[in-house]
Simulated scan of single mutants.
Amino acid sequence: MLMTVEIRRGTARFTERDVGRATRHAFSFGADYDPARISFGPMICHDEHLLGAGRGFDAHRHAGLDIVTWVVSGALTHADSLDGSSGGSHTLVPGEVGHLHAGAGVEHSEIAAAPQTRFVQVWLRSDDDSEPSYDVHAVSPGPLTEALTVGGSTLWVSRLAAGESVTLPEAGPLHVYVASGALLRNSLAEPLAAGDALLVADGTGPLSVTAAIDTELLSWRLSAADQTT
Rank of each mutant, 00 (worst) to 15 (best):
A104H: 11
R17F: 12
G20S: 04
A36Q: 11
D129S: 08
V68K: 00
D127Y: 03
D47T: 06
A138N: 13
A104G: 14
V150W: 04
D32Q: 15
R61T: 11
M43N: 01
S130P: 00
Q116T: 14
S89G: 07
T145P: 01
A31G: 12
T91Q: 11
S126C: 05
D34W: 07
S81D: 06
G163W: 03
R55P: 09
G105V: 14
G88N: 05
T117V: 05
L148W: 06
D135W: 08
L76C: 02
P115T: 01
I111P: 02
V120L: 13
F40A: 02
F27K: 03
L82S: 06
V122K: 01
S126H: 05
S39R: 07
S28K: 07
A102F: 05
S153D: 10
L82E: 07
A36D: 13
L65D: 06
H99I: 11
A36E: 14
S158Q: 02
P141N: 00
H49L: 09
R61H: 15
R159A: 06
V157K: 03
T145W: 04
T117Y: 04
E107Q: 11
A162D: 01
I44M: 02
H46K: 14
P35S: 10
T91G: 07
H90P: 05
F29D: 07
L76W: 05
L50I: 14
S73A: 13
L160V: 03
P94T: 08
G142Q: 10
D66M: 07
V122S: 10
V19E: 12
L100F: 01
S153T: 09
V106N: 00
H62T: 13
G88D: 04
L76I: 04
E96W: 13
G84P: 00
A162I: 03
D129R: 08
C45H: 14
Q116R: 13
I38C: 12
T149F: 08
G95W: 05
